[in-house]
Design a binder for these strands. Structure first.
Lengths: 136, 136
DNA sequence: TATTGTTATACTCTATAACTATA
DNA sequence: TATAGTTATAGAGTATAACAATA
């Protein structure tokens, strides 16, 4: 088994994405769409810039992402009060319903992705990943 | 900071790939090309199937990968003695030189990728990643 | 001047299926 | 029948630059 962390991360990430996509396929969602819905569900909506920062995407990729969700009437873009440049992504009724309906999927996928990591060490693993991607 | 392991792995992986590509750019190599050279450097060469398995790529992607390296005269395809279906990837003189010349890059990239993980815990982190991607 | 979002584009990567030659 | 490699192709993702509106 290789100990090259670049290769290991690439393999782990692609396996995790495959697991997420398999679980979300019945709902016609990709991992990043689902993550965006969950981000928008917390609080009063979220700016596209924040989605880009959290998911590690280019802002231009978030435009396409939100376009998809808007076409499916799962989210709406609202102009942020206080800064008219910023668009806040908020859930529609249908979006709220979908998030509620799929609330257990995120945990299921996490457990499946880390199935080979002893349960007692998963918190530790996630904490180290958080350190690695940056302390914000 | 999110604790979603799918998102964290995606971010970590893309950051690691960016670091690897930045370090390898002067040599005109991508991470997967460099990894393949190092795999071929160990032992009597490596079958394309093995490259696919180690790097987590589809075999058809490895064809393109090896084509690139062959065009640059860094590797050769040799028919495996004992199984004429299998092509063993072996380094040319130029390939050997390049691997020697860049022998410190892999370690440098690893250190850079895990810069925010305490040095004493990096071994642990890599071990958990190895568990996660599968016990082979 | 700097930031948010947008459009357009070129490039890379991924996934799949069909094919060959060998076993 | 099964496996290693190959070809072709469509779809998804990535990276970049330029632009409008707003701060």
């Amino acid at each position: 088994m290789t100990d090259d962390v670049v290769i290991l991360l690439a393999r782990a990430s692609s396996a995790a994405l495959r697991a997420a996509h398999a679980a979300l396929e019945p709902y016609g969602l990709r991992a990043r769409h689902y993550a965006t819905l969950r981000l928008a569900a917390a609080g009063q909506g979220i700016a596209q810039r924040q989605v880009a920062a959290v998911l590690g995407l280019d802002p231009s990729a978030v435009v396409a992402l939100v376009d998809d969700l808007e076409k499916r009437r799962l989210v709406r873009r609202r102009t942020a009060p206080g800064d008219r440049r910023t668009r806040l992504i908020t859930l529609t009724e249908a979006g709220l319903d979908l998030v509620a309906e799929t609330s257990d999927i995120a945990q299921l996928v996490q457990a499946r992705v880390m199935a080979n990591v002893p349960e007692s060490r998963r918190g530790e693993f996630v904490a180290m990943l958080q350190l690695l991607v940056g302390g914000d």
